[in-house]
Amino acid sequence: MLELKNICFSADGKEILKNINLTIDDAKFIVITGPNGSGKSTLAKIIAGIITPDSGQILLDGQDITELGITERARAGISFAFQQPVRFKGVTVKDLITLASGQELSTADACQYLAEVGMCAKDYIDREVNSSLSGGELKRIEIATVMARKTKLTLFDEPEAGIDLWSFQNLINVFEKMHEEIQGSIMIISHQERILDIADQVVLLSAGEVKQIGTKEEVLPGLFGMETGCRYFMGGNK
C-alpha cells in the first residue's frame, strides 16, 4: 500500500502540487487523469524518488520512504515507466530488460516480455535503445522493461502515447495480466477512456490538486465541468 500525505512541491515560484493526499491499496488499479500541466508526471516522479517534495510524507507498506533515493525505492518495490523513455547509445533492448529483471535472462525469457507488448522479439531484442527506434517502439520497450521488474507498485506515465490502435488492445491486456499475476498495485497516468474503464479508481488532478476520487462514472462528469476538461479526452464521452 502506498500513502501520500500532504505532498507539496513548488518550482520556479509556482505551486505544482498542493497538499496531495492519496492512498493506493494493495492490488488496486488506479488511473490518474487531468489536463496537461496539472502535475501528474510530477506526482509520479515524487513517488519514484526522482523529485523530492518540499513537504509531506510517502509511506510504502507503512514504511516511511520519503528520504529514500531512487535506487532504494526501486529496490523497495517501485517501478516507473517514463512518459518520455530514455535513449541509450550501445545499450540493447535485452540489456535493459535483463537489468530490470535483476537476474541473468535467457534470450527466450527476455523475448517473452517483448511479445507481450506486441513486438516481434527477434527483430528487437538485440537492437540498441537509441534514436533509431520510433517513439511508439520506445514506449512499448519501456513497458516491457517495467513488466520484467514484477514489483508491488508500478507507475505508468501516459503509456498509450504514440501507440497505435492495434497495439492498444494489447496494452489493455498487458495491464490486466500484470494486475492478475503480480497482485501488485498499478497506477497509470492516462487520458484514455478505455484505460479508465478498467480502473478500480480514477483520480482527477487539476492545477496541482486532487479534485475528485471515485469510479470512472463518478469522475468523468467532473471533468466536463472543467474549463479545459473534455478536450483532453480522446475516447469520446458517454
Partner: peptide, 12 residues
C-alpha cells in the same frame, strides 16, 4: 535521465 532511468531499475 539515463542515470535516473537505470536507477529506477534498481541500479546504484
Amino acid at each position: 535521465d539515463q542515470l535516473t532511468k537505470l536507477m529506477t531499475l534498481g541500479l546504484t
